[in-house]
Design a protein around this nucleic acid. Structure first.
Lengths: 199, 199
DNA sequence: ACCTGAACACCGTTCAAGT
DNA sequence: ACCTGAACACCGTTCAAGT
C-alpha cells in the first residue's frame, strides 16, 4: 500500500480493458461507463482519456479483443480436424459453426458489441485484422467442403455468405431467447439449421 | 397559439412515440432521451413519466409498434400471392424474405431495437402478439412450401427456425455492412442466401 | 508522460407541488 | 388526471493544473 501507484505501472490501459470485459459480461453494454471503469481501476474519472480518445474508442478496442478471441477459437476448432472427405464434406463447417455459436453463447455481450459496432470498428486495424482472420476460417471451411463435393457448382462467395448468415442468425436467435426451450438437446447437433438446409 | 395545451389534448403519449420513432431513424437508439423527446413535444422533462413507467417502457412500446408494422408488411407480402405450386415451392418464402430484409434495411434502428430487446419485450402483450403474428407468416410459408414438396420429410420446426436464422442473419450482415459492395445487383434476388442453400 | 480536480452540458428518475 | 420544478445521482468530455 505505498503511494507508488498513481501511475498504475503504466498498465492502466490494460487494466481498463480487463475491467471493461468483466463489466461487459456481468452488466452488459449498458453497465459500462468510463467513470465506473476508472473507479474500479482506482484512478480518477478523467485518467482514461490518456489511453482512449473517447468511450467509443474503448468499445472498439473491446471489439478488437473479442475478434481476436473469436478468431483464435474458430482456428482452433478446425485445426485438429482430419482432412474433409467426400463422405462428410460438411465436417469442417459443422465444427466451425459449433465454435461460432459457443462463442456467442458464452460471451453474449461481447459478441453483440463486436457485431453491433462493426461498421465503425472496421476502421480499426486490430479489429479488421482479427475479423478477417475469423472470416478466413469460414472461407476455407466452405472451400474445402466444395472440394469434397458439396455444392461444387455453386458460387463460392454466395455459399460463404449463406453459411455465415445462417450461423450468425442462429446465434442471434439463441441470444435473444427465440429458440424454444429444449429445442436442442445436449446430444443433438447445435447446428440445427444445417440439418434443415445444408444438404 | 393559445395557452390551451399544457395538456397536449391528451395525446402526449402518442406524440412522444412518434417523436421517438423519428429520432430512432435519424439518430439511432443512442439519440433517444426522455428529456429530449419531452422537449421536442413541448412539455416538461418529467411529463413522460405520466405515460411511461420508465425509458425501457417507452423502448418496448416502440418495439411493439415496430413488430406491428413488421407483421403488417410480411402479411401483405404473401397476401396477394398465387397458391404455391410444386413447380416453385419457395415462392412464398422468397416473397417473405424479401419483405423481411426490406423492412430491416428501411428502418434499421427500429429493427435492431425490436430484436435486441426481445428478451424483455416479450413480456409486453402488444409485442408478443405482433411478433407472433410475424412469426405466423413465416410458419405458414414454410408449411406451404413443404406441402408443395419442398423438404417434405424434414421436421417443420427445424425448417422454420432454419429459414428464420438465415434471413435474420442475412439482414444482420447487411445492416452491419458486411456484404461486399455490389454483391447484390438490383435485378438479382435479394435473398442470395436462398440461392446457395434453399434447394 | 501521466494523472487530478473543477467545470460544463447532458442523462434517468423521484417527489412535492400546482391546475 | 396531467403537468411542472427542484433535486439527486449519475453520465461523457474538456481543460488547466499538478508531479
Amino acid at each position: 500500500m505505498g503511494e507508488k501507484d498513481h501511475y498504475h505501472h503504466g498498465a492502466l490501459r490494460q487494466a481498463l480493458i480487463s475491467e471493461a470485459l468483466k463489466a461487459l459480461e456481468s452488466g452488459g453494454l449498458e453497465g459500462i461507463s468510463l467513470r465506473g471503469l476508472a473507479e474500479a481501476a482506482g484512478v480518477s474519472k478523467t485518467a482514461p482519456y490518456r489511453h482512449f480518445a473517447d468511450k467509443n474508442d474503448l468499445l472498439i478496442t473491446l471489439a478488437a479483443e473479442g475478434f481476436r478471441r473469436f478468431a483464435d477459437l474458430l482456428e482452433g476448432a478446425v485445426a485438429g480436424l482430419p482432412p474433409v472427405v467426400p463422405a462428410d464434406p460438411l465436417a469442417g463447417i459443422r465444427a466451425l459453426s459449433r465454435a461460432y455459436v459457443d462463442f456467442a453463447q458464452s460471451q453474449p455481450a461481447l459478441y453483440r458489441l463486436m457485431f453491433s459496432r462493426l461498421g465503425y470498428s472496421l476502421h480499426s486495424e486490430a479489429c479488421r485484422l482479427n475479423s478477417e482472420r475469423a472470416f478466413g476460417v469460414l472461407t476455407r471451411s466452405v472451400q474445402e467442403a466444395q472440394l469434397a463435393g458439396w455444392k461444387s457448382k455453386k458460387d463460392a462467395r454466395a455459399l460463404i455468405l449463406s453459411v455465415w448468415a445462417g450461423v450468425h442468425g442462429w446465434a442471434g436467435l439463441l441470444l435473444d431467447g427465440l429458440v424454444p426451450e429444449g429445442f436442442i438437446g445436449p446430444q443433438e447437433d447445435p447446428l440445427v439449421f444445417s440439418q434443415g438446409l445444408l444438404d
